[in-house]
């Protein structure tokens, strides 16, 4: 078991013929992901890496029965691509594209919610269920199948911690990059609930960062007792200056909102251990797993 993706997931790639789309279609196929179709308007009938290309999402779904779409199209075309996937009622939409205008993101998320489509991203590395399915740009080699669930606002930081977990012999159930933008689809709260319900996940690594209140909301959920599995957190950007956007559009402290201290306090109040440095997450996960066995 896992969340969001498994070995039977069938994927279409919107923008598969573009530079990034093509590169990652190949990497996803190499990982063993069932990429069944690509969609690029006006390129229907062609092929990329042996994958058939269709002009529309509707046709791709009719021909292949895919249940996940991943978007690699340029930022100003992303809204249309997302709308197309939502109109075709794809159950899960993963948007990798970085730099989508925020007002477009608002509309994408609203439309998806209305249609009951789950969105991961934008501006995210995607989702990986190690050994089964990789959708997005995660480097497959740093992951290994196991029982740790990971959820993170940052791509490279996820790879960092996953690599350390894998080196320590701790595999992962599913790793979800929720993205670094201010208006993400799935948030920490939704993903934590999925991990709680997933029998394959025994403990959860949550990687947050400054800006917004996603971490505080996650802490509140955990504090409410709804999440019984151990959660370990890390918060990036605790030494960042106020008012500066730190790479991610969402990583900005405004006034007294979104600070590392506020997030750390919220986690502490919910009984969630917070790692001071990334490598400490591995130590804390080991302790949490030991305690779990002891109970």
């Amino acid at each position: 078991m896992s969340i969001l993706l498994n070995k039977d997931s069938k994927i279409i790639v919107q923008g598969a013929t573009g530079g990034m789309g093509s590169t990652h279609t190949k990497l996803m196929l190499d990982y063993g992901t069932k990429v069944v179709a690509g969609v690029t308007p006006n390129k229907g009938g062609s092929e990329i890496h042996g994958v058939p290309i269709y002009n529309t999402v509707t046709e791709a779904l009719e021909k292949t029965g895919a249940n996940v779409s991943v978007i690699f199209v340029p930022p100003l075309l992303a809204k249309d691509a997302a709308y197309e996937a939502i109109a075709a009622k794809i159950p899960l939409l993963i948007i990798i594209t970085e730099g989508i205008p925020p007002q477009d993101e608002v509309k994408i998320q609203a439309k998806a919610k209305e249609a009951g489509v789950l969105v991961v991203g934008p501006n995210c590395p995607g989702v990986i269920t190690p050994g089964e399915c990789l959708v997005g740009i995660h480097p497959g080699s740093v992951y290994k199948a196991g029982n740790i669930g990971m959820v993170s606002r940052s791509g490279t930081l996820t790879y960092e911690v996953a690599l350390s977990l894998t080196n320590a012999g701790l595999g992962q159930s599913t790793c979800v990059g929720i993205g670094g933008d201010p208006v993400p689809g799935l948030g920490f709260v939704e993903v934590l609930k999925m991990f709680e319900a997933d029998p394959a996940t025994t403990a959860i690594c949550l990687m947050g960062e400054i800006g917004g209140t996603a971490e505080e909301n996650a802490a509140e959920l955990i504090g409410s007792g709804e999440i019984t599995k151990p959660v370990i957190a890390y918060i990036a950007g605790r030494t960042a200056p106020e008012g500066k956007r730190m790479g991610h559009a969402g990583a900005i402290i405004s006034g007294d909102k979104g600070t590392g201290e506020s997030k750390e306090k919220a986690f502490a109040a919910a009984g969630v251990p917070v790692a001071k440095i990334p490598s400490e997450m591995i130590d804390l996960i080991k302790i949490a797993l030991k305690e779990k066995v002891a109970v």
């Binding site: 993170s152 606002r153 940052s154 791509g155 490279t156 930081l157 996820t158 790879y159 960092e160 670094g180 990687m207 960062e209 400054i210 890390y234 990036a236 950007g237 960042a240 730190m246 790479g247 991610h248 990583a251 440095i277 990334p278």
Partner: peptide
């Protein structure tokens, strides 16, 4: 590379 890793 990457905002989160750079912050970390």
């Amino acid at each position: 590379n990457g905002a989160g890793l750079t912050m970390a």
